[in-house]
Amino acid sequence: MNYFTKSLLLVAVLGVAACSNASRFGAGSGTGAGGPYGDGAYGNGYGPGGAGYGAVDSAGLGGAGDPTSPAYFQQTVGDRVFFAVDQSTLSPEARTVLSQQANWLTTNRDYQIIIEGHADEQGTREYNLALGARRASSVQEYLISQGVSPNRMRTVSYGKERPIEVCSNEACYSRNRRAVTVISSGFGS
């Protein structure tokens, strides 16, 4: 692929990200989150730089129309589940989404998986970090029970550090109490 084609793909995928309701670009989560595996392969830090690297990965693997693409996983399969206040138990709706995730992940085995646990702002910083860890772990355990290899998965808690929604009422809080399954194409893609 020459440089010109890559640039076009990058623009196209950034466009998709900007239009979608998904958070991983705008919120700076996902593969932009500072080299989750510590090798610096995904760039450092948040914001446009990190998001740009994530977008390039997606571009090389096809857009949301490609059922094997991360964009498809994120938008069609559904990359996140939500939790009740101060809870980490999985609702029936969450289990449905996670079963679909497991199905996709066991089919598309080349992806590494990071499960991010998040909390709303109604809590102290330390407790919310611990609560996010509980939520991420709940999702991880469920995915393992559905056949996803634990070797592919890691968990991280962001506590209340990375809300998606910024208002201070339950409409926003309910979307911030979440666990997001972030996939990346490993080390060699």
Binding site: A33, G34, G35, P36, Y37, G38, N44, G45, Y46, I114, R125, E126, L129, R154, V156, S157, Y158, E161, R162
Partner: peptide, 28 residues
């Protein structure tokens, strides 16, 4: 710098060191 989330710094008892939590590695 602001490339990684940092939280809750604490001074050592004589002020010569600072403990803190960073997402520099991708994990707190």
């Amino acid at each position: 710098d602001s490339n990684s989330i940092v939280i809750a710094p604490r001074f050592s008892p004589n002020g010569d060191r600072i403990l803190y939590t960073s997402y520099e590695s991708g994990f707190p």
